[in-house]
Write a protein that binds this DNA or RNA. Structure first.
Lengths: 118, 118
DNA sequence: TCCTTAGTTCAAAAGTTATTGAACAATTGT
DNA sequence: ACAATTGTTCAATAACTTTTGAACTAAGGA
């Protein structure tokens, strides 16, 4: 079973920008970039919203072509579509991620750990 | 008389992305980039929408910090805030513009000229 | 089999954005 | 002073997006 993804050449620039123009989704992308290579499932992002709400945002990212979602058992493993995005919009994802990393206003994944450690 | 603009360090990444994630506004930015140096007033963009609608979109671009609007007589001269955007989000504007230039789905400024010439 | 874990779907509500037309304001040219 | 040009504001509406909770599906482990 596989979920629908747009082909690389179907990825729309305004759509990608609109999808990234939401703080929750930008935080998801920033976290994916920081854990690149590690397979992440949806529950990793529960700091950013409810299960239902994340399902919605993750679907938006997938449908826009920003992420790839692989079904593995009951999990969905989510990765950035770095290569496809880079081929279609060179430099865009990198500059967005670099700017997002420096953005203190974005919600953080793992924010609760700070309290736990304290 | 001057219009309100955000300070460079007040420009928000998600807001910039959201504002650029609209085909009309992306077309405005692409045209501004193609005519950099030339002062453009609002009527240059009438191909993209009604006067009222453009006033709305141009205000969004200004309020997000993407453009600067200078009041000169009854005109508003609009320019890209290239330096401020580049300082805050290095490479972002360039990659967006480069991708927008190649996007055939964006509405074009001056599309009517094609008909006129034909 | 039964329970848990992981995530989706649906419908409703709330909030936001885009588009329109009519009325307005300010400047410029005659 | 008058008219034309440029663009804004306002209120209404239409269209979309986000968020929520309850109900659901599907896989995995006890």
């Amino acid at each position: 079973m596989t979920l629908p993804h747009p082909a690389a050449d179907q990825i729309s620039l305004p759509n990608v920008l609109a999808v990234l123009g939401d703080p929750t989704r930008l935080a998801i992308v920033r976290y994916l970039a920081s854990k690149e290579g590690v397979p992440l499932n949806c529950s990793q992002f529960l700091d950013l919203g409810s299960k239902t709400n994340l399902s919605y945002h993750l679907a938006k990212l997938r449908e826009a072509g920003v992420t790839r979602t692989e079904v593995v058992g009951t999990s969905r493993l989510i990765t950035l579509r770095r290569d496809d995005l880079n081929a279609r919009f060179p430099g865009l994802l990198d500059s967005v991620i670099a700017a997002a990393v420096d953005d203190p206003a974005l919600p953080a994944v793992g924010a609760s750990e700070i309290e736990v450690r304290a």
